[in-house]
Simulated scan of single mutants.
Amino acid sequence: MTLSRTARLIACVLLISGSGAVYAQKIKELASIGGVRSNQLIGYGLVVGLDGSGDQTTQTPFTVQSVVNMLTQLGVNMPPGTNLQLKNVAAVTVTASLPAFSRPGQNIDVTVSSIGNAKSLRGGTLLMSPLKGADGQIYAVAQGNLVVAGAGASAAGSSTTVNQLAVGRIPNGATVEREVPGGVGQGDFITLSLNDADFSTASKVAQAVNTGMGATTARALDARTIQVKAPQDPDARVSFMAKLENLTVTPSDVTAKVIINARTGSVVMNKAVTLEPCAISHGNLTVTISAKNEVSQPNALSGGKTKPVQNATVDIKAEKGGVTAVPKSASLNEVVRALNQIGATPQDLLAILQAMKSAGALQAELEVI
């Protein structure tokens, strides 16, 4: 049987996401260590040097106010009543992620996003902008030239844009000024937090740690948390952590799940999905409305006026959907083959899968995002 382009695409995505068995994984791939986390930073700044694509100051007064405040701090006093007409400046937000164990002097990447009506940040330079954490403290300072992965051009009322021009990045654009307190160097215990809560996996991780690091070293507190006893000496603790995170564990079988994106029509399922025998009938109803514009021309000397006339044609086409028998499927390949036989588009599969779940034929958790 020859599969359609849509069916081949669905089959390819499903096979990639769900083929193979459950393999052993390192603990650092299954869990994170309590206290080892990144922190989000945010700041406000100005991008200058734009080629006339900055904020329209009449609609973004905060841009002019920011420029005046900056010039005042630099010792430039503006005459009262000065009306600045700026086209090469844009107000932006600056965001970054501060990795764990970052130290003063290290560099991190930053993302710069326009908050005004600037057309493009391409070619701009971010002026010194402090980045603050959730506690209001400054943890980094950003500055540098933007890299914008896009292009655009406009002339005579026409414009063309490739990718997003209002967002750019500065690699290594921020310097860390303050380190985040914390870490894994205090206390008698460290905590492992599983990425996915599962009692079976938590029990297996605790058993693997006790086997590799000594009995009674670890115990599972719940479906996500494993408490591990660690040495007090910092050097010994680092060596202990290095050995711990490389222990291998075979996680429990994944939960059968189907993910449906209602906006894009994407359908992805894992290898644990199975089907019970069922029958499916699927048909399409198509309504087509076409308009034909004509001109009514009166006869000569009739005194009438030429008027436009619009004629609409409505066509309703209902395709009969036959009943398709779907056999019991125990493997992902069989599930894909059964769904392809229906001949439905990805958008149609959204309704079909939901109906199969309601009928008890789809043995999987259905999640719509």
Rank of each mutant, 00 (worst) to 15 (best):
G283V: 02
Y44E: 09
G54F: 02
V180G: 00
N284M: 08
G304E: 10
L9G: 09
A338D: 13
T191K: 11
K292C: 00
A242T: 14
P171K: 08
V148H: 04
V94P: 01
I352C: 04
V36E: 05
N333G: 10
S358K: 15
A351T: 13
A330V: 12
I316Q: 10
L332V: 06
T286I: 13
G360P: 07
T288E: 13
R224C: 04
N195L: 10
I259K: 07
I138W: 01
G187L: 07
A208D: 07
Q297L: 14
S296Y: 12
G283K: 08
C12M: 10
E367R: 09
V254D: 11
L332Y: 02
Q232D: 13
S17E: 12
G214K: 05
A166D: 13
K229Y: 07
K305R: 15
G54M: 02
V47A: 03
E179Y: 10
D196T: 15
A153M: 11
N284A: 13
V64Y: 00
S200Y: 06
S17K: 12
V89I: 14
L339A: 06
K229C: 00
G214N: 04
G18W: 01
R8C: 04
G168R: 01
Q232L: 15
Q341K: 13
A330F: 05
T306G: 03
G81F: 06
R169Q: 12
R122N: 13
A156P: 00
M269D: 02
I369Y: 10
A359R: 13
L275N: 03
A155E: 11
E294N: 12
I138A: 12
N340M: 05
T345I: 02
